[in-house]
């Protein structure tokens, strides 16, 4: 039971990481109609720059903003030079061009930082565990990630529902020409929205550095999980991204933790471990298939 609670918290933490990525991806899709495979690259850039900054300065509080800024600047530069030419293209062209960007960014990171995985240390002020549920000591650092995710989700909600920018964002998603007619510089708005999404991806990458190894290609695998999240949630919906991210985070973590154990009851231990690992990698995709059979447009289809 205590193990289950711990794994639920782990699932929540992974879900939050996914949400930070999914929010940007789904926002960019909902507003600009762009499907951006290179979103995972921005996550990787955030992770690398944060890890390197931390190694150089020893300061985690400097490292995270550095990772966010690197991802945001890279994102805005790519948006302004390449991606905005793709908004009017079909999704196939968008997929292929951003596929090319992934190859490019993976190689740039390999040249700059090498192919050896890097580990970032957990900062002192977030190390150790707390026991807020009796019998379940839980790492402070993971709790901090969950807290950041909750804050970001709240902040995004406030931004989109209550501010003028958010109103433009919502209007832009449904009617680009109308927003243009209002005299809003839509190009600038798009660049800013893209930068916001990139920054969140960078934040996600910067925060997972102390938990996972930072390496070339780390963005590719999580990108696919992020796709699964936003397809489950409904393309273009932030609320869908949140629900989808938590669902995928939970199911992935829980199957990874418990499936091998369950399988050991019916087969040899080595087989149970490898098949259990394989099945838990597939679990989120099976969930997606089930969701799509019932609701082909996802749980919270955006309007239009």
């Amino acid at each position: 039971m205590t193990l289950l609670l711990e794994q639920v918290l782990n699932g929540l933490q992974y879900g939050v990481t996914l949400f930070l990525l999914a929010a940007g991806l789904t926002l960019v899709f909902g507003i600009m109609g762009l499907i951006n495979l290179a979103h995972g690259s921005l996550y990787m850039i955030g992770a690398f720059v944060a890890a390197r900054t931390q190694a150089a300065t020893g300061s985690f509080l400097l490292a995270v903003p550095a990772g966010m800024a690197a991802a945001a600047l890279t994102g805005m530069a790519v948006e302004a030079t390449i991606l905005r030419r793709l908004y009017a293209r079909d999704h196939l062209d968008q997929v292929l061009a951003t596929f090319g960007l992934i190859l490019f960014f993976n190689e740039v990171m390999a040249m700059l930082f090498g192919r050896q995985p890097m580990m970032a240390p957990i900062p002192d002020f977030l190390s150790g565990s707390v026991t807020f549920i009796p019998g379940v000591p839980y790492p402070v650092y993971r709790l901090a990630i969950i807290a950041v995710g909750v804050l970001v989700a709240g902040g995004l909600y406030g931004l989109i529902v209550h501010t003028r920018v958010g109103m433009l964002v919502r209007a832009g998603a449904t009617n680009r020409d109308m927003v243009r007619a209002l005299g809003v510089r839509i190009g600038l708005l798009y660049t800013l929205v893209f930068g916001l999404g990139a920054m969140l991806a960078g934040l996600s990458g910067a925060m997972v550095g102390p938990l996972l190894s930072v390496q070339v290609g780390m963005g590719d695998r999580i990108l696919i999980s992020t796709f699964v999240v936003i397809v489950i949630g409904g393309l273009g919906s932030i609320r869908g991204a949140l629900v989808g991210a938590l669902l995928v985070g939970m199911i992935d973590t829980l199957t990874r933790a418990f499936l091998p154990g369950l399988l050991r009851g019916v087969m040899a231990a080595a087989d149970a471990d490898s098949i259990g690992a394989g099945l838990s990698s597939m679990a989120a995709m099976i969930l997606m298939a089930v969701v799509l059979m019932v609701r082909p447009r996802g749980l919270f289809p955006a309007h239009g």
Partner: peptide, 21 residues
């Protein structure tokens, strides 16, 4: 886009399957 992502995800599912065998 859903079609693009779903075909991607199913293929990746088989990838994980064979990587686990």
């Amino acid at each position: 886009v859903s079609f693009i992502m779903i075909t991607l995800a199913f293929a990746q599912m088989l990838f994980y399957l064979f990587a686990a065998l």
